[in-house]
Design a protein around this nucleic acid. Structure first.
Length: 400
DNA sequence: ATTAGGG
DNA sequence: CCCTAAT
């Protein structure tokens, strides 16, 4: 059997309370440019691109499966059983450590011995004076950033991902005599990008890591706690408002093509993604004024969920369209990735969405009821704002 | 740091 | 989402 290098992958403390980190999987390459991620109302962080995957689906695949034509190792079904514990293995252990794959004459079993998982390219930019320990942490965090949101195992056979979990190995073609080269396992970031309306940090939420399809919403309504607080009604636009309604930013992201991490050492210098460096190096004449020569990564796209829209509408109905800071605090205080600018922008698009025909709308359909409230609130606050404009000129003249 | 709008 | 001028 082939001897493949074993990837030492410490998943032990990977998930639990991972340091605040941001991963930016770049799926929307269609955007004009990238920009650094900012936790606006909070602190800005310098980030650097640190990873890309060879797979367009943004996942890592194994590359060290070995098989054996021999008939030994029978009865030892350590393969899959060990696998499950592999994810929690201690540092320095390979994810899987099963037995060799082989055919058992009598019962047609297929054994796997996954010796390694291929890791995606991880570009790490770290100052020379950084310590090895820092380097280690950086790499660790890079990996954490990618899989920190939980991971799943994907099966790739003959170059194609095998989606159907109910299909048998035989049906799939993974029988006793398949070419092991055609089989691969992949570590896939858990697709939990649509947080539920919880007030607490999602890292504390219990997400079903075995979520089958990305389409699956975060179930577990039992844990959902909507804290409703009564607010004094100032106008006809009111009702109760939810405090800490939206979830906080959790590190997982949709498309694991790039992972941006905040640098660790305080003495780190300018962070420049290798891609940018290379691009400029190959360029005969360095770009004049790169609009973004820095290692700025455009924030990943995070479509607002219906519950988020609900919270936004709720807040705007009460606070109006000119106090995004407050809207943020009221309904998105825990959603670190939603800045007040984002909320303002979202409201803008909501108003637009509400005006166009349902057929022209895209993305997850927003309940018409909400869109109606958007228009109503927009109309109300628009004239409300107009009234305020009528009384301001006085002060303007004082200045003149 | 926020607001407000255009890109 | 990003970029910015103006507060």
């Amino acid at each position: 059997m082939r001897v493949m290098p074993i990837l030492e992958f410490d998943m032990k403390r990977t998930f639990p309370g991972a340091k605040t980190m941001h991963v930016y999987y770049n799926r929307n390459i269609g955007y004009k440019h990238q920009r650094s991620q900012r936790d606006f109302p909070f602190k800005k962080r310098k980030l650097f691109k640190c990873g890309s995957f060879s797979n367009s689906d943004g996942e890592m695949s194994t590359d060290g499966i070995s098989s054996s034509p021999t008939n030994d190792l029978h009865g030892n079904a350590s393969g899959s059983s060990k696998a499950s514990s592999g994810g929690c293995a201690a540092a320095g252990t390979s994810v899987f450590n099963g037995g060799r794959a082989f055919l058992r004459p009598g019962d047609s079993h297929v054994k796997f011995r996954i010796k390694s998982f291929k890791v995606p390219e991880l570009f790490v930019d770290i100052p020379e004076n950084a310590t090895i320990g820092s380097l280690k942490r950086t790499v660790m965090e890079a990996v954490t950033a990618i899989l920190g949101g939980g991971l799943r195992i994907g099966v790739v056979f003959q170059g194609k991902k095998v989606r159907d979990d109910n299909k048998t190995l035989l049906q799939t073609g993974i029988s006793h005599d398949y070419k092991f080269d055609a089989l691969g396992f992949s570590l896939e970031p858990n697709p939990v990008q649509t947080p539920q309306p919880l007030g607490q940090d999602c890292r504390s939420c219990v997400f079903p890591y075995e979520t089958p399809q990305p389409l699956t919403r975060c179930p577990s309504p039992s844990t959902a706690v909507h804290t409703g607080i009564q607010q004094g009604r100032s106008d006809d636009h009111t009702g109760t408002s939810l405090s800490n309604f939206i979830e906080s930013d959790h590190e997982s992201a949709p498309s694991p093509h790039y992972a941006a991490l905040e640098k660790i050492s305080a003495n780190s210098r300018a962070l420049v993604p290798l891609t940018a460096v290379n691009a400029e190096a190959l360029s005969a004449v360095p770009l004049r004024k790169p609009k973004r020569s820095e290692a700025t990564q455009r924030r990943i796209r995070r479509p607002f969920s219906v519950s988020e829209v609900e919270a936004l509408v709720q807040a705007v109905e009460k606070l109006g369209t000119g106090r995004w800071r407050d809207v943020k605090l009221r309904a998105f205080d825990n959603a670190k990735h939603r800045t007040y600018v984002d909320l303002k922008d979202k409201w803008k698009t909501l108003v637009h969405t509400a005006r166009i025909s349902p057929q022209q709308r895209r993305g997850e359909p927003v309940p018409q009821e909400l869109l109606d409230r958007v228009l109503t609130a927009h109309a109300y606050w628009s004239q409300q704002q107009a009234k305020q404009q009528m009384k301001q000129p006085s002060e303007t003249y004082l200045i003149l």
